Computed example of a mutant assay.
Amino acid sequence: MKHLLKLALVLFLSISMLSCSDDNNPSTQNPPTQGQLVQQITRILEGGSTTVTTVNYSDQNKYDDIYRDGNLSAQYTYTNDLMTTIDLYASNGNLAVSRELVYNENNELIRFIVDEGAINRYEVSYDETGDIVTLENYYTNAGLGIDDEYQMDIVLEFSNDNLIRRAGSVEPFSVMYDYDNKNAVRKNIFGRDVLKIVFFEQPAHGENNITQRNFYSNNFGTFLYSESFEITYDDNDYPLEVKEFDQSGTLDRTYLYEY
């Protein structure tokens, strides 16, 4: 009996160690999970214009084609279960922005290239915890005669899978984010650990929801201003409505979510 108890304990500890190892690996893309998936997003600007975005999925919770007001808005491509391209389209159907994602042999994101006519290349590196991500930015613009010229380092700091700080070495401002403790709209999306990096300028793929965005002069110098978010939740603590207020406290836009 004692032998069986010891064997069970060893197996339990082994499984626990493997689980912890996977949690700390920044290269592991989120596997399919059970949970709410946003199906439709309605954005209402205070000027009165409204746009409706419809999200389609493949393989349970992978982004597929996304439509805005009936027109193709975004298209996601996967290779060997890794997200490899993200194409964004203008309302006229023309390709506007293409993102190419590159991985190492451990399936860890090491580079992404953003092509919108001019090209920004980002080399990605991680600290030991995976919570500090540095993006080394290079810029190409054939029309201006610029060829893969170094621009700056952008440092992203994450906590609980949420982007909490963003600063560029030569950016005019830096940003800190505050969050609630509820479920984020896109919490159950496949590849969220990659999306939170490649869409660092508009963080929306964290664990929780942004409640305040705080702007500072470069490298967190002088506080400049804040923008706030007022959130109404459903019974499962996912957002149903998010109101976004500008720095003067004036309502700027409202988002409605259907799951």
Score class of each variant (00 low, 15 high):
Asn214Val: 12
Val242Thr: 09
Tyr257Pro: 07
Asn92Cys: 07
Leu195Val: 02
Tyr216Asp: 06
Ala8Asp: 02
Val185Glu: 03
Tyr259Asp: 10
Thr51Cys: 13
Phe199Trp: 09
Asp252Ile: 06
Asp59Pro: 11
Leu109Arg: 00
Leu82Gln: 01
Leu256Gly: 11
Asn104Ala: 03
Gln202Glu: 14
Ala8Gln: 06
Gly143Phe: 08
Ala74Leu: 01
Val38Ile: 12
Ile146Thr: 03
Asp127His: 00
Ile44Gly: 05
Pro32Ala: 05
Asp235Lys: 10
Ile189Gln: 01
Phe215Gly: 02
Leu18Ile: 12
Asn160Ala: 11
Met152Gln: 12
Glu171Lys: 03
Leu240Val: 03
Arg186Val: 04
Gly47His: 07
His3Trp: 15
Asn92Ile: 06
Gly48Tyr: 11
Ser228Gln: 05
Leu251Gly: 03
Asn61Gln: 04
Ser16Gln: 12
Ser226Met: 11
Thr211Trp: 12
Ser98Thr: 13
Tyr138Pro: 02
Leu163Trp: 04
Ser174Trp: 06
Cys20Ile: 11
Asp22Leu: 15
Gly130Met: 01
Ser49Asn: 13
Phe229Leu: 08
Tyr138His: 03
Ile197Pro: 04
Glu116Pro: 05
Leu224Arg: 06
Asp127Thr: 00
Leu37Pro: 08
Asn94Asp: 14
Leu82Ile: 00
Tyr122Phe: 09
Arg165Pro: 11
Ser98Trp: 06
Leu7Trp: 11
Tyr238Arg: 00
Tyr122Leu: 01
Phe215Asp: 01
Lys196Ser: 10
Asp193Ser: 14
Gln36Lys: 15
Pro31Arg: 02
Tyr225Pro: 03
Cys20Arg: 05
Gln151Met: 14
Pro172Thr: 02
Arg165Ile: 04
Asn183Met: 07
Ser91Asn: 08
Thr232Gln: 12
Lys243Ile: 06
Ser19Met: 14
Met1Leu: 14
Leu224Met: 14
Ile119Phe: 01
Asn236Asp: 10
His205Glu: 12
Leu18His: 07
Gly48Leu: 08
Gly35Asp: 02
Asn188Gly: 04
Gly70Gln: 01
Gly117Gln: 04
Glu244Ile: 15
Pro203Arg: 00
Arg68Val: 07
Ser98Glu: 15
Lys2Gln: 15
Phe190Ile: 02
Asp64Glu: 08
Asp148Asn: 15
Tyr63Met: 03
Asn92Tyr: 07
Asn181Ile: 14
Asp246Ala: 05
Met176Phe: 14
Tyr63Asp: 01
Arg166Ala: 11
Leu156Gly: 02
Met1Tyr: 15
Tyr177Ile: 11
Tyr78Ile: 08
Tyr259Gln: 08
Tyr259Ala: 06
Leu18Pro: 03
Leu95Asp: 07
Leu156Glu: 03
Val194Asn: 08
Thr79Ser: 13
Arg192Phe: 10
Arg213Tyr: 13
Ser169Leu: 09
Thr53Glu: 10
Thr51Gly: 10
Asp153Leu: 09
Leu109Trp: 00
Tyr122Asp: 00
Asp81Gly: 05
Glu128Ile: 05
Gly168Ala: 05
Tyr225Met: 09
Asn107Ile: 01
Tyr57Leu: 07
Met1Arg: 14
Glu171Ile: 03
Thr42Trp: 10
Ile197Asp: 00
Arg43Pro: 13
Val170Phe: 13
Gly143Arg: 00
Leu4Ile: 15
Asn25Val: 02
Glu136Tyr: 12
